[in-house]
Structure formats: structure tokens, C-alpha cells
């Protein structure tokens, strides 16, 4: 377990906790900025998405790898943990296809092999 690895006298759980708290503070604090500090440029929705996803991945990694011990445990648990990723990806694909924009708004590589044609053009 991670308590045996000490960094600056503290175990990995402590540092993981500090990192999780920092990124949560960053995540919540970022919401209060509608514009980039010191500028008049509005923060775009895609930047917000990017920040939230990156912070989410870091926090998810910290909780999964260290608090849930996936870093040290036998890899079978990591494989079990990653299994639903396939399910989640399938659902994201389903979201894309069932979206009103899905039929004629998605590029050809996103759809089943319809000869690079959109369904509505056949």
C-alpha cells in the first residue's frame, strides 16, 4: 500500500489528497471567470470543456490509482475497472448518432460504412 512510500516525510495518500483539493479549488474558482483575467476575451465553451475534462481526468486518476489502490493492486482489478470504458464509449457513439445533428451533421468517418455518403444523400 501507498503509506510505505514517503515524499517529504508524508505518504502518497496525503499528497494525493492535497492534489485533489488543489484541482477542486482550481475547478470551482475557474467558474468565477467569464473572461480571461486582464482581458475582454470571453472564455469559450470549448475551453471550459477542456479544463473540466482535464481536471476530471486528473482527479479520477488520483482517486482510482491511489485511494482505490489500483496503482499497486494486481492488474486484474485495473482491467475490471477499465471494462466499462467500452460501454461508455458505445453510449457516447449512441449519443452522437441519436443527436438531431447526427444524421447529416457528422462526418462520414463517424458513421457506418455508407460509402462516405450521409444517410440522407443515398
Amino acid at each position: 500500500m501507498g503509506e510505505h512510500k514517503l515524499i517529504m516525510g508524508k505518504d502518497i495518500y496525503f499528497w494525493n489528497f492535497i492534489i485533489l483539493m488543489f484541482f477542486t479549488l482550481f475547478e470551482v474558482g475557474a467558474v468565477f471567470f467569464e473572461k480571461y483575467p486582464g482581458t475582454n476575451t470571453r472564455v469559450s465553451v470549448y475551453v471550459v470543456w477542456g479544463i473540466l475534462i482535464v481536471v476530471g481526468i486528473i482527479k479520477g486518476f488520483g482517486i482510482g490509482a491511489f485511494f482505490m489502490h489500483l496503482w499497486d493492486d494486481p492488474k486484474i482489478y485495473l482491467r475490471v475497472a477499465l471494462f466499462p470504458t467500452l460501454f461508455v464509449l458505445l453510449m457516447l457513439w449512441g449519443i452522437g448518432l441519436s443527436n438531431p445533428e447526427g444524421v447529416n451533421g457528422l462526418p462520414g468517418w463517424c458513421t457506418p460504412d455508407w460509402g462516405e455518403q450521409y444517410a440522407t444523400e443515398r
Binding site: 475547478e27 470551482v28 475557474a30 467558474v31 471550459v48 470543456w49 473540466l52 481536471v55 476530471g56
Partner: peptide
């Protein structure tokens, strides 16, 4: 849930 429902 928190970023998706509260922040975005």
C-alpha cells in the same frame, strides 16, 4: 457529476 451539472 459536479462539473457536468453545476459548472457547465
Amino acid at each position: 457529476i459536479f462539473p457536468a451539472f453545476y459548472l457547465y
